[in-house]
Design a binder for these strands. Structure first.
Lengths: 152, 152
DNA sequence: GATGAAACTCAGCCTAT
DNA sequence: ATAGGCTGAGTTTCATC
């Protein structure tokens, strides 16, 4: 598939605002509406565009508290790893979970209402998952930058 | 403003797929098309919905390598902090930057092509910012979970 | 461009306060 | 009775071919 500078610009625009009409995009890219339409379909089919989503304000819905949580496992047998990953994926407070190199095995991004809710999460959910050896939590004081848009 | 269970469901649906038509949403929510339309406008105006974006596949555009980078500052004077935060925000490899409690001051999520590109980023960009005392990088082995959707 | 569908507007209705 | 959400019809604009 051909992927040129115009496709890049198009992805930049769609990553910023996916509700723009093809006409608006056409103006910005100096293309016809149909050309924009076809490029978008091409990018969707080729898997460049994964999905279109609404981003919502976490403060507005009462979950302003972000915690990053390092986790070390007791053992790293295949079964334990798979089980841990599956269980952690099902926790809806966990927005992101990464398997990492370094001292700790995993990094979790956890979203909750406040410190009390985080405590509940730790006690009732996280440490209820077996095979966790230790955890280390870091609280977000402020979000300096947060974007979903990848630059080229 | 009233915010009820239907609004929650609507936000859940829009966080999953913002390209659904109001008709589809109306069916899922058992409402009329107009009612859905009005609720969405209400949620946009009230700031619950921040923006609509396309999520793109980082592997497809040649940036599959994710690194989390802890950073400690030398001094924490107001000026240094502001300057650091501004400069780091301008780096397009940095998708996210958080001011954290704990041993390190900041956590950065960095997206690059590969280890060589990360090295370039560290040498040419990151450590070029003054007032950095130390850094500690952790490489993502696998992304176990990654969602932009916040649950209620 | 043409067309079918979607977004958006409006006027009036229903419900709860 | 008043406010708010709901509906369905009508109009404009968009996506799609």
């Amino acid at each position: 598939m051909i992927f040129d500078a115009t496709d890049q610009k198009l992805l930049d625009l769609l990553q910023e605002d996916s509700k723009q009409t093809n006409k608006e995009l056409a103006n910005k890219l100096d293309l016809s509406v149909t050309a924009v339409f076809e490029r978008i379909k091409k990018l969707e089919k080729a898997g460049f565009i994964e999905k279109y989503v609404a981003l919502i304000n976490k403060n507005k819905i009462g979950k302003p508290f972000v915690v990053f949580c390092h986790i070390k496992l007791l053992q790293h047998s295949h079964d334990n790893v798979v089980k841990f990953e599956r269980e952690v994926s099902h926790l809806n407070e966990v927005l992101e979970c990464y398997h990492l190199s370094g001292d700790y095995d995993y990094l979790l991004k956890v979203l909750v209402a406040d410190m009390a809710a985080f405590r509940e999460f730790m006690i009732k959910k996280l440490t209820n998952i077996n095979h966790i050896s230790s955890t280390h939590s870091m609280f977000v004081i402020s979000e300096v930058k947060h974007t979903t848009a990848i630059s080229f």
